[in-house]
Amino acid sequence: MKSRLVARPDNMSGNSSADGPQDSQIVVPGENLGKSGEYEAGHGVVITNDTLLATKNGKLIIKNNVLTIEPIHTTYFPRPSDLVIGYVEGCTNNIWFIDIGAPFNAILPMSLGPSKASFGSTRQVLDIGESILCRVQEVEETHSSVVTMKGMGLRKINTGSVDEIDPHLVSYLSGNGKDLLREMKENSDCRIIIADNGRVWVDGEVSGIINARNQFKDLTQNYRLIEDGGNI
């Protein structure tokens, strides 16, 4: 990084980082998180001139001497082995293009498709507009990704409904909130699969799907209460 030339340093009192970074505090881009050395820079943090700098608006997490920021809002970026729900957006003779909610469509090659498709008949196996449960196989540096349907439980989704939830709720429900998810499944009598791209597949009776949807809605509203340690 280049050294910084300051316009009028006497006018700009620096941010008070005397107390050092604190866990769970909300930080904003450009915020000074103290000298590097004591901590390492994780997601959302960069080091400039031996100083840790926040680059995102979110909650600061300190774990194993690494500073990471859990952003308040974020776009989904695929990582290898992520379980995702995608929509078929287009196809060629041997490739499907899948919208996985990321900036770029993923590619599903015919060889990784759900069943034997023959060259030129991809649409008969997976038609445009259909939904699939798939796994991210590889992600290129430029963010284009390849998904696969070869694997346990990966399939075409024919029934039920796909809803979108907050990415934070995804990490909460697959972490500390696992019991909550089990409870939701029991209450609604539905099969619920939470994919890493923030899409949720709920399958069962219509009344159950509605029940689950309402529970997700309440959970989104109460999510910040959970974060603050409150009971829901």
Binding site: D99, E130, S131, S161, V206, S207
Partner: peptide
């Protein structure tokens, strides 16, 4: 792109006199 699943789900909801946002 219109998801086929969404269309089917909306049909199912309509048969049960329900809407997607309750």
């Amino acid at each position: 792109m219109v998801s086929k699943l969404l269309r089917n789900h909306l049909h199912e909801l309509a048969l049960n006199d329900q809407r997607i946002d309750g």
